[in-house]
Structures are given as C-alpha cells and as structure tokens.
Amino acid sequence: MTDVTYFDPERDSARPVIAVEDLVAEFRTEAGIVRAVDGVSFDIAQKEVFAVVGESGCGKSTVALSVLGLLPQPAGRIAGGKVLFRGEDLVSASPARLRQVRGDRIAMIFQDPLSALNPTIRVGEQIAEVFRAHREIEPKVAWEQAVELLSIVGIPRALARAKDYPHQFSGGMRQRVMIAMAIALRPALLIADEPTTALDVTIQAQILEVLLDVRERFDMAILLITHDLGVVAGTADRVMVMYAGKKVEEAPALDLYRTPKHPYTWGLLGSTTRVDRPRTGSLPQIPGSPPSLLVPPPACRFAPRCPRVQPICRTDYPELRKVDVGQVAACHFAQDPGWGPAPEEVPA
C-alpha cells in the first residue's frame, strides 16, 4: 500500500512545506513548568509523509498543536523556536493570519473522531463550514462540495449521509468525515494526530489507505503522529523518534527499521515487531518509564533506562549527530562502527 516512488527525495526535499526550528513548548502546571517539547527541529517536504513516534507523553501532540498555534490555553505556550510555513514564521504570526492558515493551508485531524466532531451539527454542515470560513461561497455550493468530499473519502451514499449527525456513524466512518473536513481546501500539510489509535485494527488500515490516497490526489504532505511503529512501516517516508520532549533520532523509514542507531529506537522496534504476541495497541515494553519532564535527567534523558548506558551518558548531553544520509541520532555512541541492537534485542 506504500507508494514508495510517490515521494521523491531528490525532487521534493528541496522545498520544505514546513520547517520547525528549535521548537520549545511549555505547560504551566501546579507542580511547575513542564517543558513538553525541548528544542525540536525537523522539516517536511512536499508530498512527504513524515511520522513522529514515541511513548505516550513524549510531546508528539504538543509538536502538532504548536504548528497550528493550538496549544491548550492558558496553560500552554510556545517558549521558543520557529515554525516556518513556506518560509513564513507562524509562531510570530498574528492571530488573524494564523486563522487564515488553519484549515486552509494546514489542516488537522485528531485521535478520537467522535469527540472531535460537534455532536449537534450535521456532518455535511461541519465540512461546509470550512469553505465558508475561508472562501466567498454560496452555502448551497459549500454543501455540494461537502457531499463530494464525503464520497472522495469513501463514505457510501454521501448525499444522504451528509445530513446525519456524528453519532450516527461508525468510528472508521467518522474518521473519514474528519479527513474530508481536513482536505476540503486542499491544504499543503495535513497533521494527523494518532488518526487510527481509537479504531479497530481492520479499520486502521483503511484509514491509512484513505490518507495516502488523498495525499496523492491533492499533493499534500502529512505529519503523521503515532505511537504504533506498525502504522509507520507501511506509510511513512521519514520518521522522527521523540523521547521526553527531545528528538532522539530521525531517519528515512526503511533505514530506521534496518539500522536504528538510538537505543531507545531499537527498544521501540523490539517491542513492536513481536508479532507472536497480541498487539496491545500501545507501544513500549521497554523496562522503566519515561522521566518526569519537570526535572528531566541532566544529560542523556534515556540514560536511566538505557541498556548501554556509560558514565558519560549521565554527565554530558548527547547532541544529535549524523550517522548516515538523512539519519541523525542523539546518542554518544551512534557513530561508533557496528553500533546497533544485539540480535536478542531485535527478535526476528
């Protein structure tokens, strides 16, 4: 189902749709300031599917919400860095400009489509609303467009179903409605925050198919957030791994599976490729749990759980270093020859 040739790094990478630079995002909590995203940079090229993976709480959603300036208020704020959309910084953009970009140039879908749709508005209307917010358009035309979008994302009898309310759809169909809403104005970037996590396994594949289909149809880039590396495998062009608010590794999808360079990444891989065990849906069986973001470990944040930890890991912060073409990892030893998981760490 992957169209590996659709995204061509040579051709498309030169023109990133979005470039996030040194993003720092914080939440004020009763216990203190939580730095949920700490100096994360990445960029996404046109038509690229860029995946962000990591355990629960590592800051994936915070990255996604920061891009659109939608951090929950008043607790959350972007404390530093830039989000460049085709070169224009959205962090310093005016609220009016941000509103223009949202839903039009950058759209977003969420994990739980039932709660993400307004229960008291017909789905066709919720889609039509996007047109009316951004374009001068007759209500009737907006409605017709909404119906067409519903059929594009594969909802049978779209004309009739547009008049239904969200609770009248199944989980998978609801997520299709969300996708229809997100692609209404053919955005350059679609952010999908765990779009399949709340769905049945069989439905998950269908939804990913729809996403890949619309990206091809409309030449969109996708920022795909997930904690399921199984989802990434067939879908993403490139992958960024996050741990405790930091980017710890980034690589083309195939390289990440073949030659993971960060011990956390191979821990994740080890915990997902166990096809012999029923998948619980959640990621890691890595021993231990992520550190508190209030008082993160001073140097390598993974040190308390790392199977290869050395004294230096507890004193010096491991900057990201290049390990291959397009691959970086934040581990002191990532560039060492032969560095990688032992056979028993990656079950066959």
């Binding site: 509103r99 307004n118 996007v130």
Partner: peptide
Amino acid sequence: RTARAKGL
C-alpha cells in the same frame, strides 16, 4: 479544538 483548527 477542531473548530479552531478549521480556522473559524
């Protein structure tokens, strides 16, 4: 949040 993400 969805409503805001739509740019309303």
